[in-house]
């Protein structure tokens, strides 16, 4: 039986998502252990220029589904296109990055093919050529290892957990155009507005600076934003301050917000409610700055600083500035 892996490459406005390249790289690493073929499928309008970037990651084949009908995302249009490509290639596994597009699209495609989907996967295990998926449950309070009993299975991989790496091996990359039948589209994206403020997406950010009640009011985000700017970090927030209306829900980290796994997570004035810890405790390094030495956040912290955030944060920013990280 083939153990081929098909990877859905997500693009928006002609930009390939980094987490899709992570999924493609991980597929190639898995292929090494099972001698499988990798197909990368891109859907969109005028996407041919993207092929050159994908070549560097050495899939065995790139499939381009290029047409005006795919200029704007529609669940039904993309489902039809991807499902037909999967039927044609008939892979054992379909990978994608776990993004808001994937949450909309992948369960629908998997259902059309009557296949299971393991979502938000953080680790893959290989057992005699069969892939097992490890995924957080209860927002990471426990981890489940999932096995598939069907000939085909779908996996969406959590951004920032798998390394994106170009390949230097010499293999050929085939490239083909594919034109699936048009779907009956009853709902589609008509416009997209960039969010104000946030320059780096939380779930993909390598560094996150987060604020909670301890920053005292929305006027003090500026202090954290300065720290973000010097680190190239994204700004996060606890549920308490989102519910208080200090900042948009898109910034919320934790059980009813985003689950994140950055290299560095700096929690400023966050006490560390169980729901917040669930959303960030898989970060590589956690720094906690809080005036309450008994705050639960310190139990998860790699480095704990007991003290006044208004004193410490500006000094940390100043120290970092001396390093000239951007240059």
């Amino acid at each position: 039986m083939s153990q081929n892996i098909l990877v859905f490459i997500e693009q928006r406005a002609g930009q390939i998502r980094k987490s899709s390249l992570e999924a493609l790289s991980e597929a190639r690493r898995q292929a090494k252990t099972t001698s499988s073929q990798i197909q990368a499928v891109v859907i969109g309008a005028n996407i041919k220029p993207l092929a050159a970037q994908l070549h560097k990651y050495k899939p065995n084949k790139i499939v381009l589904i290029d047409g005006e009908a795919y200029a704007n995302y529609s669940t039904e249009g993309y489902t039809q296109a991807l499902a037909e490509a999967i039927k044609k290639e008939n892979p054992a596994y379909v990978f994608a990055a776990h993004t808001s597009m994937a949450k909309d699209l992948m369960p629908r495609v998997a259902t059309r093919l009557d296949a299971p989907l393991a979502s938000d996967v953080v680790e893959l295990k290989n057992e005699a050529g069969k892939i097992l998926a490890v995924r957080p449950m209860y927002s990471g309070k426990v981890y489940g290892t999932v096995e598939f009993t069907s000939p085909q299975a779908f996996l969406t991989l959590r951004p920032n957990r798998f390394e994106a790496s170009e390949s230097t091996n010499g293999g050929d990359v085939a490239q083909e155009d594919f034109a699936p039948a048009q779907a009956n589209i009853r709902a589609k994206v008509v416009e997209t507005h960039a969010a104000t403020g946030q320059k780096i997406e939380l779930s993909e950010a390598p560094i996150i600076v987060s604020g909670g009640r301890g920053i005292k009011g929305p006027e003090n985000w500026a202090m954290l934003q300065e720290l973000c700017d010097v680190l190239g970090a994204a700004l996060g927030a606890s549920r308490a301050v989102v519910d208080a209306g200090w900042i948009d829900h898109g910034h919320q980290v934790g059980q009813t917000g985003k689950t994140v796994s950055p290299q560095l997570y700096i929690a400023c004035g966050i006490s560390g409610a169980i729901q917040h810890l669930a959303g960030m405790s898989s970060s590589k390094v956690i720094v906690a700055i809080n005036k309450d030495a008994d705050a639960p956040i310190f139990k998860s912290a790699t480095y704990g600083l007991v003290g006044d955030v208004f004193e410490i944060v500006p000094k940390v920013t100043e120290e970092l500035r001396k390093l000239n990280l951007g240059s």
Binding site: R17, Y73, T99, S100, M101, D104, R186, A187, K188, V189, V190, E191, T192, H193, A194, A195, Q198, K199, I200, E201, S203, E204, H249, G250
Partner: peptide
């Protein structure tokens, strides 16, 4: 809809 770094509008 809330998506990465943006909001998008779906009509149907």
């Amino acid at each position: 809809r809330e998506i990465e770094g943006a909001h998008e509008f779906v009509e149907g």
